[in-house]
Amino acid sequence: MFRSWLALFIAFVIYSCMVYSYCDKRSVSDSIPPPHALAGWKTWQSKNCQACHQLYGLGGYLGPDLTNVTADTNKNEIYFSAFIKYGTGKMPNFHLNDSEINNLISFLYWINKSGKSKVDKEKVTWSGNYNIEK
């Protein structure tokens, strides 16, 4: 019994190390967040944005998924800035200062660079799996 358990556990440890090391195949220069984005990430967490919004479909459902919000050509930084600064009926005003707002927008631009949240129909293969690796 213990031997079977141990064999499985060793497989788990090896698999975990592989996940940590190789899950993102992009180069470091492509994946690393710029300092403003890193600061924006902190704001995202401290204001608990994920309670209402999603990134890659993960988070709360009160607001929209923001993974690729910055890719929308109809919206620009001024639009995002006004939205965050004053809130809406549904979204409270968090009283963020301009620097925090800019950092948050940088974070969302950086997230957009990591990939697409929605999987296109064409990416589904015959086996029911996807082919969306970056």
């Binding site: 698999y15 996940v19 993102d24 890659y56 990591s114 990939g115 999987v119 996807y130 690796e133 970056k134």
Partner: peptide, 23 residues
């Protein structure tokens, strides 16, 4: 136990990480 260790990928199927994680 096998499912505990390896069956968590459905949370992130849409994330463009390495495809062997999904498979």
């Amino acid at each position: 136990l096998t499912n505990l260790m390896f069956n968590w990928g459905h949370h992130i199927y849409n994330v463009p990480a390495a495809s062997w994680i999904r498979s």
